[in-house]
């Protein structure tokens, strides 16, 4: 019994971070209809920023977020303006090429700047843990999980209750009508893309004390995010959170009971099964035309 609880807990913790990475991705897709293949590199960049703030300025990763997240937001604004906006009216393949090329480009820039060495943020509390009954709980993973969930909920509330949030949702549901009610759609795109980057930036900050970073870290982690986005329903934030947690738990149980080399296989099977039953994912809607915050 203890084992089940411990496995569920570990799965939920890592699932929370998957969810946070995926929320940014699904948000950008839902609103701009752009699949950002460079999303993983933004994760990497945020982890590098955190690393350097830690090593040069001695800034704790959680404090560093105050700098890293806004910087990532800015980086998102710039990227949107220079690369995404000019291709928004172009066919989908063009956007795929652009974001894919960006991903490869960023990897190589990071490689040239920092080499492919792994770099770690080693905090005093990195491996601190406490015990409740038979369960071991890592402070850091717990904090990362809580922060990830809080951010996902925060972004959902923002979308639901703020002016900008409703403009973002409106744009996701019908860009043309959004223009006609006076929404500056270009601005919505820019802010949404930047938000996506800021969210993945936050995920990067939270991951830094847990994982070493090298230029390919994000690319390795982003695969699961794509699975989660599709599973949750393209564009659905609630779906991404649910699917993220689910994948985390499935991974955890399958690596224990079936062996670590099976876990990707297992979640892929789950993925196929769920999509066979519900082709649009948990909360997706036909044609993925909408973004929903439930």
């Amino acid at each position: 019994m203890d084992i089940y609880l411990q496995l569920a807990l570990s799965g939920l913790f890592i699932g929370g971070i998957y969810a946070l990475i995926s929320v940014g991705l699904t948000l950008v897709f839902g609103v701009l209809r752009v699949v950002n293949f460079a999303h993983g590199e933004y994760l990497t960049i945020a982890m590098f920023m955190t690393y350097f703030l830690f090593h040069t300025a001695g800034l704790d990763p959680f404090l560093a977020s105050v700098i890293v997240v806004p910087l990532m937001f800015l980086l998102g604004l710039v990227t949107e303006r220079l690369l995404i906006r000019p291709t928004l009216d172009a066919p989908h393949v063009v956007q795929v090429f652009v974001t894919f090329a960006l991903s490869v480009f960023l990897q190589n820039v990071l490689l040239a700047l920092f080499t492919s060495d792994f770099r770690s943020v080693r905090t005093a509390y990195a491996t601190a843990a406490f015990q409740i009954g038979p369960l071991y709980v890592s402070w850091l993973r717990l904090a990362a999980f809580l922060a990830a969930i809080a951010l996902a909920v925060g972004i959902a509330l923002f979308l639901k209750y703020s002016y900008m949030g409703s403009a973002i949702r409106a744009t996701a549901q019908d860009r043309r009508s959004a223009r006609l009610v006076g929404i500056n759609v270009d601005r919505v795109y820019a802010i949404t893309f930047a938000l996506g980057c800021a969210l993945v930036g936050a995920a990067g900050v939270l991951l830094s004390p847990l994982f070493p970073v090298n230029p390919y870290t994000g690319a390795d982690m982003i695969l699961v995010a794509f699975v989660i986005v599709v599973l949750g329903g393209m564009g659905s934030i609630g779906g991404a959170v649910l699917a993220g947690l689910m994948i985390g738990v499935v991974e955890s149980f399958s690596s224990y009971f079936l062996g670590g080399e099976m876990k990707q296989f297992v979640y892929f099977i789950c993925f196929m099964l769920i999509l066979a039953i519900r082709p649009v994912g948990f909360f997706g809607r036909k044609g993925a035309e909408v973004m929903d915050v439930t």
Binding site: I3, Q6, L7, S10, G11, F13, I14, I17, F211, D220, M221, G248, E251, S252, F253, S255, Y256, G259, G260, E261, K263, Q264
Partner: peptide, 20 residues
């Protein structure tokens, strides 16, 4: 004897097995 993917983000299930 246990294999796992090097890209993994969580090895706690493996640690649990080792511990038992």
């Amino acid at each position: 004897k246990e294999l796992y993917s090097a890209r993994t983000t969580d090895l706690s299930p493996l640690v649990l097995k080792l511990r038992s």
